[in-house]
């Protein structure tokens, strides 16, 4: 039922463009998993998806589904479902006819179509909406129907292109939960593209960061935040606020904060990265505890943004909103080794 996707050395350049959209992009999506391609606009992520869908042709490389190259197959022969940013329901058909579309094109018999449509309308929590027109549905409902329509034929591969970014934030959360639930039921190998890091980390079990048409990092969501492999990835994920220059050696990093213990493959001059949320305020004993002076406190309501100096280095950190900290206070900061990473400067 499920199908793995292999993207191998994919190159793509738009006709007449000087810079390529994709450069040797390789990616493995094991059968039945959910992978997010995360990148800013212009990173080439939508192009990547449209190549997998068969709506664009690459200038080099290969896309294999279940071990076979699909590049020569037109979209209707590829075993896939696609959900786009806009629902794009067929306006001349009812909701049920929209969901049934793929099955009808395959000549599935009516009774089976009716059963499957009812099952999917239940699954997207819109039972009884079958006879309505798509224009009578809200944006979120339309996108749910678009999801049901893509899943109706039980495709081996489900592709989603920024599927929830046109919805309001409240709805987005619900849709992510629904997508995860549907994936559990239907099991289609899922590849989805987004610029929203919360969406990527919420829905996917593996995230590929695409920057300037290159795969910058491919990792489970937590690792991405804890251990960005480059400064660019850290910047894109909002984790480059603390970048402290120094020198890495096996198990250690020497910088103005002192000798910190950590685990890194980097050697020589580098930048130490630690996210503001990972720094612990208090007087722990042990490794990687540095004395610091609070220089600024900004109350954000949900948390405090704090600046502190230690050894001439300014550190940014956040704490809970009730932490009793004021500018001028002396304190100690713990930099947990598992949250430290070193990247090339």
């Amino acid at each position: 039922m499920t199908t793995d996707i292999t993207i191998a050395d994919l190159d793509h350049t738009y006709p007449g463009a000087t810079t390529p959209t994709l450069r040797r992009v390789s990616l493995e999506v094991p059968a039945g998993t959910r992978t997010a391609v995360l990148g800013p606009s212009g990173s080439g992520k939508s192009t990547l998806l449209s190549i997998v869908a068969g709506l664009s042709a690459p200038t080099g490389g290969d896309v294999r589904v279940a071990g076979h190259s699909v590049l020569r197959q037109p979209p209707h022969r590829r075993d896939l479902g696609v959900v786009f940013q806009r629902p794009l329901l067929f306006p001349h058909l009812t909701v049920a006819e929209n969901v049934a579309f793929g099955l009808r094109m395959r000549g599935t018999d009516r009774a089976a179509i009716r059963r499957r449509v009812a099952e999917l309308l239940d699954a997207v929590a819109l039972p009884g909406y079958g006879e309505r027109r798509s224009s009578e549905l809200s944006g979120g409902q339309q996108q749910r129907i678009a999801l049901a329509r893509a899943l109706a034929v039980r495709p081996g591969v489900l592709l989603l292109d920024e599927p929830f970014s046109a919805l309001d934030p409240q709805l987005r959360g619900d849709m992510r939960a629904l997508l995860t639930e549907l994936h559990r039921r239907e099991g289609s190998t899922t590849l989805f593209v987004t610029h929203d890091r919360d969406e990527a980390t919420d829905v996917a079990d593996t995230v590929t960061v695409l920057l300037d048409g290159r795969v910058a990092q491919h990792a489970p969501p937590a690792d991405l935040f804890r251990r960005p492999t480059t400064l660019a990835v850290a910047r894109f994920l909002g984790g480059a606020g603390n970048a402290i220059p120094g020198t890495a050696s096996p198990g250690h990093f020497d910088c103005p904060l002192g000798r910190l213990r950590l685990d890194t493959d980097h050697r020589g001059a580098g930048l130490l990265l630690i996210r503001p949320e990972a720094i612990v305020v208090g007087d722990q004993q042990g490794d990687n505890v540095v004395p610091a002076t609070i220089t600024a406190v900004t109350d954000r309501g949900t948390h405090l943004d704090i600046q502190a100096t230690s050894g001439g280095v300014t550190l940014h950190l956040t704490t809970g909103p009730a932490a009793p900290l004021r500018p001028g206070d002396g304190t100690s900061l713990w930099l947990p080794p598992t949250h430290l990473s070193v990247v090339a400067p």
Binding site: F84, M105, R149, V153
Partner: peptide
């Protein structure tokens, strides 16, 4: 855009014309 959606849903070019393009 609707034609592209139809193709990804498995509609052959002739089916796209008959079921999507002409009705629209």
């Amino acid at each position: 855009e609707h034609e592209r959606v139809a193709a990804t849903l498995g509609a052959r070019p002739r089916q796209v014309l008959r079921h999507v393009t002409l009705p629209l």
